[in-house]
Simulated assay, not measured.
Amino acid sequence: MEIVFLGTGAGMPAKQRNVTSIALKILSKGAIWLFDCGEGTQHQLLHTSLKPRKIEKIFITHLHGDHIFGLPGLLGSRSFLGGEEPLTVYGPPGIRSFIETSLSVSSTRLKYDLSVVEIGEGTVYEDDQFIVEAKRLDHAVLTFGYRIVEKDQPGTLLVDKLMALGIQPGPIYKRIKSEPTVRLDDGRVLDCSEFIGPPKKGRIVAILGDTRPCENGVALAKDADLVIHEATFEKKAESLAAEYFHSTTRQAAEIAKKANAKALCLTHISSRYELKDNPLLEREAKEIFPNSTVAKDFKKILIPVKKDRH
């Protein structure tokens, strides 16, 4: 899993930061999931190796313009660029009307199947590898944070142990991985669990869009490998942050600490701060949560596969 920040600013585009969009690359699937799609997101994609046709899901946190104004253009461009695989957009009530109206008025015709799912709290997506959960955050309009949980994966086949018993590679290995017991040609019966390593613990990413500090944010971030949290303002602007339903660097760090998260990355930075201010913002967060960083456009964070549990 890899995170790519396509836009890390707040409110409106600035010279050093575009507005919000975050890409999650699922390396095992070759798929891309987007979280929010602010104005200019498709332009930001041009500066990366990410291909719009590889985007299969888009999760919208809320319907403020700096999080959705890039969506109609991206949906259209994905079609123009040969995207034919289905795409699903998840978001609060109203996202369907916004998309349908935008595409209809602009006479945009898509060459792929587009599904729009208007969500509430709870599990919004699940497959054999991932669960995506949404909870309501504390913002001026209905806003959801997302928790992406990778399911635990089976352990690796202990090949050396099999070889030591004279069991050579072949179709039998596939059976050992998928069946509880296997009878060999020589009559021996194997307990397959003895030849499978410990399960690989799944990774967790929490994406907390615009919000004041709230308990749902802590719940979504619980034990996460990475928390991405808005930090629109520095710590001394706490009253201003509260007035505009946003968080400060310090407040985001407190959420990560309460949640027992492993790492925090701050984004949705006000245009009053330039990139040269990143060390200040990062330092404020690190006072509370040492493993904190500040995002800038095109920053990448790799979330490696966890080692086997013992």
Rank of each mutant, 00 (worst) to 15 (best):
T61G: 15
Y90W: 09
H67P: 14
I99V: 06
E118T: 11
P93E: 00
F98G: 04
V116Q: 07
P72D: 06
S102V: 03
V124I: 15
E121K: 06
G91F: 06
G122W: 01
L114Y: 05
F98C: 08
S115F: 09
V89P: 11
I68G: 06
L114G: 11
G94K: 07
V105Y: 10
S79K: 11
G122P: 03
R109K: 13
V117Y: 08
L81Y: 15
S77E: 15
I119T: 15
D128C: 00
E126M: 01
L103T: 02
P92F: 02
T88R: 13
V117H: 10
S115I: 00
Y112I: 06
F130W: 14
G82I: 10
P92Y: 01
R109D: 07
G76C: 10
K111T: 09
G120F: 00
T101G: 04
E100P: 04
R78D: 13
L81S: 15
G91T: 04
T101H: 04
F69Y: 14
I119K: 08
Y90I: 08
L74S: 10
G70E: 03
S79C: 14
S77C: 12
V105Q: 07
G70Q: 11
G91N: 04
R78C: 11
Q129F: 06
V116P: 14
V117C: 09
T61Y: 09
L63N: 10
G73C: 14
S115Q: 08
S106W: 15
T101V: 13
I99W: 02
T101W: 02
G65N: 12
D128Q: 00
V89S: 07
G94E: 04
I68F: 15
I119L: 08
E100Y: 06
I119Y: 07
E118G: 15
T108Q: 11
D127H: 03
P72F: 10
L81A: 14
G120H: 03
R78G: 13
F130H: 03
L75W: 15
F80I: 03
T101S: 08
I99F: 03
G83P: 15
I119S: 09
V105N: 05
E100R: 10
P86D: 01
I119W: 05
G122M: 00
E126K: 04
S104T: 13
L74W: 14
L71T: 01
H64Y: 11
Y90E: 05
Q129K: 01
T61R: 08
V89T: 00
E85Y: 10
G82V: 08
E118A: 10
V124D: 05
S102G: 04
F130T: 00
V124P: 11
G82L: 12
L114R: 02
R78H: 12
Y112W: 10
S102C: 07
G91L: 04
L63F: 15
P93I: 00
E85S: 12
K111M: 11
E126I: 01
S115G: 07
I99H: 04
L87W: 03
E126Y: 07
S97R: 09
Y125L: 05
